[in-house]
């Protein structure tokens, strides 16, 4: 309880004051008391309301300043798409021209020689330019497919047998490989004036057999056995077993009809 009566009179209403009322001017008291009533007059209320609803248009560049500080996702995505489209428009034609140019100027494919083979006189080797870095002095062997020639051995007999003077000379059958299911191919080549039939010798290189020339099983075994025997004799240095007429070979050959007619006529003439 304040001691001074003035202080006591204002005790309830001056509790919020920092100093006693005697130390404060009366005007100050009135000014402090005024907010306690806190009743705005009508003009004050209108002014306050007007100030509260006040709107002022910002400057034209204010939005740009705000936008510059905001990393909008769509803006970035849109910029990405825009630049990607521009790059695609510029680079795709260039890439196409570049690829097209490379294809036109593409060098010949390199040939790496895996194994060099002596080029026989009858085979043809492709001529290659010397511009490739990895080329060797030995050209790769490539044998051109030869035109099928027809040759039929009439009988494997003695060497004394002479071939008739036919307009076409047929080479004897050559052994392709030593197997049970022996596949023979008559290596055809037409010669004129050849009087001897060369004996059948195994080929160094297997050749594919046409489907119309197939060996029968029993005969193949016999010939297989013969060839095996002869090979063994060669290895042993004994030489081929002579005479050839010790063996007889029968053969069934499937030939086209035209060839069959020709052969029949030829054999009949012989």
């Amino acid at each position: 309880m304040p001691k001074h009566p003035v202080d006591r009179a204002f005790q309830g209403r001056l509790s919020e004051y920092e100093k006693s009322p005697r130390e404060t001017s009366w005007e100050r008291i009135q000014e402090i008391q005024l907010p306690a009533d806190n009743r705005w007059t009508v003009p004050e209320l209108n002014a306050i309301r007007a100030l509260d609803e006040l709107q002022i248009q910002p400057k034209s560049d204010s939005w740009k300043r705000v936008q510059a500080a905001l990393p909008t996702t769509k803006r970035l995505v849109g910029a990405w798409f825009k630049w990607s489209a521009a790059a695609a428009i510029l680079l795709i034609p260039f890439a196409g021209w570049w690829v097209f140019t490379l294809e036109k100027e593409a060098p010949a494919p390199e040939v790496h020689t895996v194994a060099s083979l002596p080029v026989p006189a009858t085979s043809t080797a492709p001529s290659k330019s010397n511009s490739e870095v990895n080329r060797t002095s030995t050209n790769a062997l490539r044998i051109e497919p030869q035109a099928p020639e027809i040759s039929i051995a009439t009988a494997v007999g003695s060497r004394e047998q002479k071939a008739a003077k036919w307009p076409l000379e047929f080479l004897p059958i050559r052994l392709e490989r030593l197997e049970d299911d022996l596949v023979f191919e008559a290596i055809p080549k037409a010669f004129a004036g050849i009087n001897e039939i060369e004996p059948a010798l195994p080929l160094e290189q297997p050749r594919p057999s046409p489907p119309w020339l197939q060996a029968t099983s029993p005969w193949s075994r016999s010939l297989t056995a013969y060839v095996a025997t002869q090979r063994q004799r060669i290895k042993n240095g004994s030489g081929l077993q002579a005479p050839w007429n010790a063996y007889s070979v029968s053969m069934e050959v499937k030939v086209p009809q035209a060839l069959h007619s020709f052969l029949s006529n030829t054999l009949a003439a012989h």
Binding site: L54, Q57, Q67
Partner: peptide, 25 residues
């Protein structure tokens, strides 16, 4: 919120005059 520039501009146009009037006080 998604970053749409048009939406942000719409909000800016609606709120900036009121905020600028407040700042002027």
């Amino acid at each position: 919120i998604q970053g749409d520039a048009k939406a942000q501009k719409a909000l800016y146009d609606a709120l900036s005059p009121y905020i600028l009037g407040l700042c002027h006080r």
